[in-house]
């Protein structure tokens, strides 16, 4: 028993060492590309840490977004034509060290504050956990489930709204020039991988229907397919070429979510308070549309906006 705990301790130490090394290297490195690579590996190790801390949903989100899509978005800012890719600090070393000390003092203060309140917080939680356990046994799990579903719906709706705001910002910047060279060998590889990514997106979405999460991770996978198509030479990355269809796709998730919510309100239910019997199907439908919207949004973010019509 003690040996097992000891092994967990060693694993924790190793994971934290790797994580902190990666973060320091990513922030301090003077080479921009190197920093990005380190940041992607940082995302990977962070996913392991989430797994170790019993947070499977967050591990999945991190794998899809932190280590995957976020990395691709970062890489999209790299351009081979700018040779200057080293980032030297313009400040005097004294400033660098001074700010370093300042930041560490701030960190220590935060840690001190946090650890002084943590015991009380934990006590409150312990009580909360006890209440949870009693509820589960007294047969009133029904309202708890309803509240949970409700809460989750709000969560997803607001996430979608934030993403929609981001894509409005990106679209407001206008059209972009295409930035990638087509390579024949690559298009053949992409043909292999795109269906796999789409299939996986469908699976993640379906698996997410009975556990939290799903739409965003699935959307990230769809966006991965879009990025591959873009790299393979499809200037629209598989998105519809008609503009109104793109617009429709982008707002579909948030739009249908709102419509369903308002419809339920009109029907005498609470906002986004699905009738329990059909809740699963409603959620699946909405999350399916949300996945499409998210995938399109992230693909457009990778391309930097709507592509310009190419002069054939």
């Amino acid at each position: 028993m003690n040996l097992l705990d000891g092994l967990w301790g060693v694993l924790d130490l190793l994971l934290v060492a790797v994580l902190l090394l990666l973060a320091m290297a990513a922030v301090l490195s003077s080479d921009r590309r190197r920093s990005m690579m380190l940041f992607i590996v940082f995302g990977l190790v962070l996913a392991l840490v989430w797994a170790r801390l019993h947070a499977p949903d967050i591990a999945l989100a991190e794998a899809a977004i932190g280590a995957g899509l976020g990395g691709a978005l970062l890489m999209a800012t790299l351009r081979r034509d700018t040779h200057q890719q080293t980032d030297q600090f313009p400040q005097h070393p004294v400033v660098l060290w001074g700010v370093g000390v300042l930041v560490m003092v701030l960190g220590t203060a935060i840690a001190w504050g946090l650890f002084s309140v943590l015991p009380t917080v934990e006590q409150t939680w312990r009580k909360g956990a006890a209440v949870d356990a009693q509820l589960a046994f007294s047969g009133v799990s029904h309202p708890v489930t309803a509240v949970l579903l409700n809460f989750r719906a709000w969560d997803t709706l607001l996430e979608l709204a934030v993403l929609l705001a981001a894509i409005f910002g990106i679209r407001a910047l206008g059209y972009v020039r295409s930035a990638y060279v087509t390579e024949v060998a690559f298009s053949q590889l992409a043909v292999w991988l795109v269906p796999l990514l789409i299939l996986m997106a469908g699976y993640v979405l379906w698996a997410g229907a009975h556990s939290p999460g799903g739409a965003f991770q699935a959307g990230a996978l769809l966006a991965g397919a879009g990025i591959l198509l873009r790299l393979a030479g499809y200037s629209h990355a598989g998105l519809p070429t008609t503009r109104w269809l793109v617009r429709l796709g982008l707002v579909a998730g948030t739009g249908v979510f709102l419509l369903v919510g308002l419809g339920l309100l009109g029907w005498g239910q609470g906002f986004l308070h699905y009738p329990i019997a059909y809740a699963k199907w409603w959620i699946l439908l909405i999350e399916m549309l949300a996945t499409v919207s998210i995938g399109m949004t992230l693909t457009l973010a990778f391309m930097g906006g709507i592509p310009q019509k190419e002069a054939a």
Binding site: M37, I40, L44, A47, A51, P56, A59, L60, A63, A64, A67, G68, L69, G71, A72, M75, A76, L78, R79, R80, D81, R177, S178, A179, Y180, V181, E183, F186, L189, A190, L193, L196, L197, M200, Y203, V204, A207, Q217, A220, L221, G224, I227, L228, L231
Partner: peptide
């Protein structure tokens, strides 16, 4: 599932990184 996603998106990241760009 996390491992599956990790494996698939790693390819996308490598593809973006090694792809030749205009310019």
């Amino acid at each position: 599932d996390t491992a599956l996603v990790l494996v698939l998106l790693a390819v996308v990241v490598t593809a973006v990184f090694t792809h030749r760009q205009r310019g």
